[in-house]
Design a binder for these strands. Sequence first.
DNA 1: CACTACCAACTTACTGCCAGGTAGATCCAC
DNA 2: GTGGATCTACCTGGCAGTAAGTTGGTAGTG
Lengths: 197, 197
Amino acid sequence: MQARPKTGTAELILDATERRVQSVGYNGFSYADIAGELGITTASIHYHFPAKADLGVRLIERYTQRFLAALSEIETAHPCTLEQLKSYTALYEDVIANDRLCLCGMMASEFETLDEPMRARLTEFFERNEEWVAHLLERGKEQGMLAYPGADVRKAANAIVSMLEGAMLVARAHGGVAGFRAARDVMLAGFGRPVGG
Amino acid sequence: MQARPKTGTAELILDATERRVQSVGYNGFSYADIAGELGITTASIHYHFPAKADLGVRLIERYTQRFLAALSEIETAHPCTLEQLKSYTALYEDVIANDRLCLCGMMASEFETLDEPMRARLTEFFERNEEWVAHLLERGKEQGMLAYPGADVRKAANAIVSMLEGAMLVARAHGGVAGFRAARDVMLAGFGRPVGG
DNA sequence: CACTACCAACTTACTGCCAGGTAGATCCAC
DNA sequence: GTGGATCTACCTGGCAGTAAGTTGGTAGTG
């Protein structure tokens, strides 16, 4: 009846799971949910990902890879750092516009319930993410297109990531996509023009 | 053996549950967890809160009441609006310093899994919270102590709430309390001195 | 003051469900 | 026929929730 011996099942499982986690969280989905959506059995998922934590780890790794790839793309697509920052925020806007949360933001809220391998990957995601934003701010400062208060560019980068993650989170309960855009615009107004330090 | 006919059990249940939810989330705790901690049975919790959602609703209501009360206190304690804003951020700092998340921020991440009554209460929390910050910004502008970009004070308030919620979220996975403080300082630097609009 | 009826608080004991996970058989392509 | 991928069938444990009984303070009555 259905084309059975698929070789891309693991990826399909990751796709479906990613969507679920971004919506209801890592603790909010079950193997049965994914199996039902894909028309397979839970045992099949266990074949590809023995334990739920294995699936979780793979999920974060893939998400991080894709995210970093998107960042590289932004870097090469626009010479202007202000445009790069705007494109960076657009990454988040796409996510919330599709009624999702950042996979790693969602899992950060569940941090205390996760095992060490997953925690380590989450930490790495935010570390790399913040690092990229920090470099962006440095280049922006040289260009005269971006500015940030204080001497520590890492702090400013942390603030930007935090703001975007938080804006997505809050948007779910209050404000929706419009709320996210509002917060984003305020942030861009703060960093997009010379302010203090 | 133990003093049985206690009249404050419902509050004790709310206290214990609040701590749990702020750590592992609404979907991450069970009646058995709370019962074990308090030395009572799960049936006893069901007596006070028939369904888990009843407990959830009461939890948000109480948290909102206390939060708003703290905001009123801030308003009367300091005449300076900049000091008020700093005190406002200290509310969040206390939470993350105790290894917790904002109860409503945590639940916002679980929004899709919650029933309507809980969702409505969460929306109300953020609405009232943002409203208070917006009024603070307006008073701060009159005083010349605070400034925000653009004409819509609500957007700026949304940005502040989002930033603080996000900073707590990210801090769990990366940066810890120091990370939170870093993001907060960047935010205060942006709003604490005249910038653009 | 003693007796009784009552009631809120809490317990024991249970149900049904769904979760993650496993063992072994089956299917299908090479 | 070998081996990767999938299925059927099952297990165990934990979950929210329920029914019925127990306890202990309190109010009412003579």
